[in-house]
Design a protein around this nucleic acid. Structure first.
Lengths: 209, 209
DNA sequence: GTCTATATGGCGATAGAC
DNA sequence: GTCTATCGCCATATAGAC
């Protein structure tokens, strides 16, 4: 720790490069040579630090899923009104996705192609905070303000609305082009609208019993 | 056409096997040997019929995306009430997905790893029927019954709600296990609820101006 | 720790018998 | 059309100099 180097160390440079390449191309599509190029080092160094391709891929996967849920946990355990929690959660997820737009597609691909990794995901990310969500929801439902819904359904629906457009980004580009609109404009609008859409889905309208 | 054979011909057996293997493992993750095994033929036959791996992968991709939108087009051009169209569309998509659960994850992976394929997708699937949707939506919006929304947003939101749970199926399994519920039960419930959720998102409640 | 050079194996692809 | 046998490359992985 004494005398910190200006440049990040080689191991981190490799891991960062591997992160970018694996997320773009998937584990099986990525080449060690391309990672080495992107890291600005020789191919042999990847093996020096990470032994083989599988271990390097595992390290990237763990780093990606490690920070999936902690922010959510904090938000739903706070003491804001439920609808503010939802808005904060949606905003937080959009921020994360803008910083890692390839993440949803990557995680979907990896889990489909290597289902065994779901175990590593759970251990590394911790469970999604269903209990905290359910507690908040049940209060609204009991008060007659919301339609009944399980926390799992609400959570999955929220993730669907937020993550799918990023995962399917090339297809979304196609949609926006038909619209004469930019992809960024569409995402910006959905960032604002998604929380309200979610809330309209669960709120009872005033005329309902 | 005269004297139809009992068994499907070899080329179709190969294409069917390739379909299953590519959808599970992705184009770069799949092995020609595994496709040959699954088709019950020798590896050399794959090259006899499809020349090389890329052409075989292209044939599968085209077959997968060819039938993405036609059913949607018909539904939204019919003369039912708009909300019935939405219900029919959602039911139709769920049927398609139950028959091809790996499809969303596969398409997402392929487009992320080979963005150039979006062009082939468009030509093969035809454009999504945004105009028909927009027409139906605008009537409801002009009548003051719906919040303003673009057809692109409505369509993308619908696809998100339907397709994401299939694409993220291993993660959804994790959710249902925490719930003490089966995956099938969750999908069955969402098949019933998704259209209503969509409609609640756009309907104005009676107290709103 | 970092490099160059090389070994090893696997996979796509082909040749050729039947 | 279908098979067996084999080629040739390319990606992973290692050896060893510096």
């Amino acid at each position: 720790m004494a005398a910190p180097k200006k440049e990040v160390d080689t191991e981190s440079r490799i891991l960062d490069a591997a992160h970018r390449v694996f997320l773009r191309e998937g584990t099986s599509g990525a080449r060690m040579q391309e990672i080495a190029n992107e890291a600005g080092v020789n191919k042999a160094l990847l093996h020096y630090y990470f032994q083989n391709k599988q271990r390097l891929a595992d390290a990237v996967f763990l780093r990606v899923v490690r920070n999936l849920f902690p922010a959510v946990q904090q938000i739903f355990e706070s003491d804001q009104p439920f609808e503010d929690k939802v808005r904060a959660f949606v905003a937080s997820e959009f921020d994360t996705m803008d910083a890692n737009p390839y993440m949803p597609g990557y995680v979907i691909s990896e889990l489909q192609q290597q289902p065994g990794r779901i175990k590593a995901l759970l251990e590394s990310s911790g469970p999604p905070p269903l209990d905290a969500i359910q507690g908040s929801l049940d209060k609204e439902i009991a008060a007659g303000r919301y339609h009944p819904i399980t926390a799992a359904d609400f959570f999955l629906t929220a993730l669907s609305l937020i993550l799918y457009p990023y995962a399917a980004r090339p297809g979304v580009t196609m949609l926006t082009e038909m619209n004469g609109e930019s992809l960024d404009a569409m995402f910006a609008r959905r960032r604002e609208m998604t929380a309200e859409w979610l809330l309209r889905m669960v709120r009872k309208s005033s005329s309902e019993p």
